[in-house]
Amino acid sequence: MRCPFCADDNSQVKDSRPTEDSTAIRRRRQCEGCGARFTTFERIQLRDLTVVKSENRREPFDRAKLEKSVQIACQKRDIEQERIDRLVSGIQRQIETSGESEIQAQKLGEMVMEGLRQLDSVAYIRFASVYRDFNEARDFEEFASNVKDMGGK
């Protein structure tokens, strides 16, 4: 594993343990070159996944990008990181077990929306405002009233 500090290719695993939700292995490593310590995560990947964007552009599925989007929506909300990790892992698992190697970006966005709707109504509205491209305050009002009608948290 390449060291993020000095780019040395040699590191030694000092500790390994499963993550809270058992979807990954957390490894503490120490670089043999500079002695720095860093953490890596090893996850199961059933197949290479591709996200089909607008105009049929394709890009590899990136779990980190998905996680960042969810974290931005959940910013300054009292939501534990473990719950965010479970949401992202659940979405990734759904995609991987679907049997398809490609997923439409729109479907992926809907999966995130559904997960956030169940997690936190404010995060759900935040994500929707970007995903659905709200342009005016009225867009927020209409969407928020629908969330309220659905009994959002």
Rank of each mutant, 00 (worst) to 15 (best):
K76E: 06
E59Y: 02
R43G: 04
Q75K: 15
Q71L: 14
G109M: 06
S121W: 01
S121R: 03
L46K: 14
D62T: 04
R58F: 13
R138S: 11
Q106G: 11
K65A: 13
A73P: 08
E55C: 06
V70T: 08
L87R: 01
I79L: 07
E110T: 10
R47H: 04
S101M: 11
R83G: 04
Q75D: 12
S54A: 14
Q81D: 13
V122M: 14
F127S: 00
E82H: 13
Q45T: 09
R58M: 14
I103V: 10
S129R: 05
G99V: 15
L87N: 01
Q118W: 09
Q118H: 15
E55D: 12
K107Y: 01
R63L: 08
I103G: 03
Q104F: 03
E42P: 13
L66V: 03
R138Y: 11
D85T: 04
I103A: 05
D78C: 07
T50V: 05
L119S: 03
R43K: 09
L87V: 00
Q106P: 05
R63P: 04
I103Q: 04
Q75N: 14
D120T: 08
I44Y: 04
Q75S: 12
Q94M: 10
V122F: 14
L49F: 15
Q118F: 08
Q104L: 03
R47Q: 07
Q106N: 14
L108A: 01
I72G: 07
A64V: 14
I125A: 05
K65G: 10
E96H: 06
Q104C: 03
K68L: 13
D62W: 02
A105Y: 05
G115T: 02
S121G: 05
I72W: 07
V52W: 01
D120I: 06
V70A: 04
A105K: 05
V130Q: 10
R93Q: 15
R126G: 05
T97W: 15
